[in-house]
Design a protein around this nucleic acid. Structure first.
Lengths: 184, 184
DNA sequence: GTCTATACCGCGATAGAC
DNA sequence: GTCTATCGCGGTATAGAC
């Protein structure tokens, strides 16, 4: 059952919801039909468990950099420059391209909550930077937080299109540069 | 045949490559099996035609704002703030989530070229802004171009996750603000 | 709890008539 | 050029044995 969730996470990451069959998950998890349908009511419920798990992991990974010491720009930069498997894309962001996930509220919810948390957390850090005089009053925390999250998500898109990490790295460095200009 | 391509464009936009069946395209185009397989060798080739068409349309639409008068920031802002069907996402960017598209070089090519063109075009505009003293020397055109394109692509992702235009608008305004700070 | 068998459906493509 | 018939395969789920 643990293996089923992990395998579902991997396959959802790689092939999305529409592109992932229960059978493929079972094969990857080395489990039979009966086992899967005993623990889960079907594909959707297993996917829900897998998406929630991936969301938790994303939060934990991000919080590592967010909670690190330094200025707001330093912590954001550390988050942006963290090692990532760029060409695999974002496990959560990927799912927004999936019509069946977006159409099912119970599947969209963990996706929504994950990005809601991420943007909120980034906004807090930017707001803290403003309070400490790192950023000018013209910087809006909610806007800037959305911009930061968007650059990552969009960076993945550009990288996959080009089949190269480069556009991702460019986009991230461009953003870091803009943030530094703003705080200068 | 024209109808087949248009229908394929719509369905690829909405459901992606994996989620779109030849039969669904035929239904949408009001065409039969025979008709489709007469004009195209199969799903992949029809998809290729549809993606190329969508790429052309994206370029034309973008060039409208790029070619408009004003400073670099003004033209970029006009492009960013253009009316978009945010919740439908980007017809081209969407395809980067599709494993079968990414795995097939002939399908990935038009995606790659479209974003290659877009980033190049944005880089030209930023470079022009630098020459005219609008941006400081510390601004890198290629980086900034990638950042701008990424904010749009990522904005779509965040908006779809939230089922609301708001995160997209926030991300775009956050970027515009940063660009203005940089040119101030 | 896990297994195998079975069911029904739609996918993607081919064949051959018209 | 377009139509209908047909094919083999895999998706998603259920049933009932063990």
């Amino acid at each position: 059952m643990e293996r089923l969730i992990r395998s579902a996470q991997e396959l959802l990451w790689e092939r999305g919801y529409v592109g992932t069959s229960p059978k493929a998950i079972q094969r990857a998890a080395d489990a039979g039909q009966g086992s899967m349908y005993h623990h889960f009511s079907g594909k959707a419920q297993l996917a829900k468990a897998a998406i929630e798990r991936s969301g938790e992991e994303l939060r934990e990974a991000a919080e590592e950099q967010f909670a690190s010491p330094g200025t707001a720009t330093e912590r954001i930069t550390r988050y942006l420059e963290r090692d990532r498997e760029v060409l695999r894309g974002c496990r959560i962001g990927r799912l927004t391209a999936d019509p069946d996930v977006m159409a099912d509220p119970t599947l969209r919810k963990p996706v929504d909550e994950t990005f809601g948390w991420l943007r909120g957390r980034l906004a807090e850090i930017v707001a803290e930077g403003k309070r400490k005089g790192e950023y000018p009053a013209t910087i809006d925390p909610d806007q800037t937080a959305a911009t930061i999250a968007a650059v990552l998500q969009g960076g993945y898109v550009l990288a996959r299109a080009a089949n190269s990490d480069e556009p991702f790295e460019l986009a991230v460095q461009g953003l870091i540069n803009l943030l530094q200009e703003a705080s200068a």
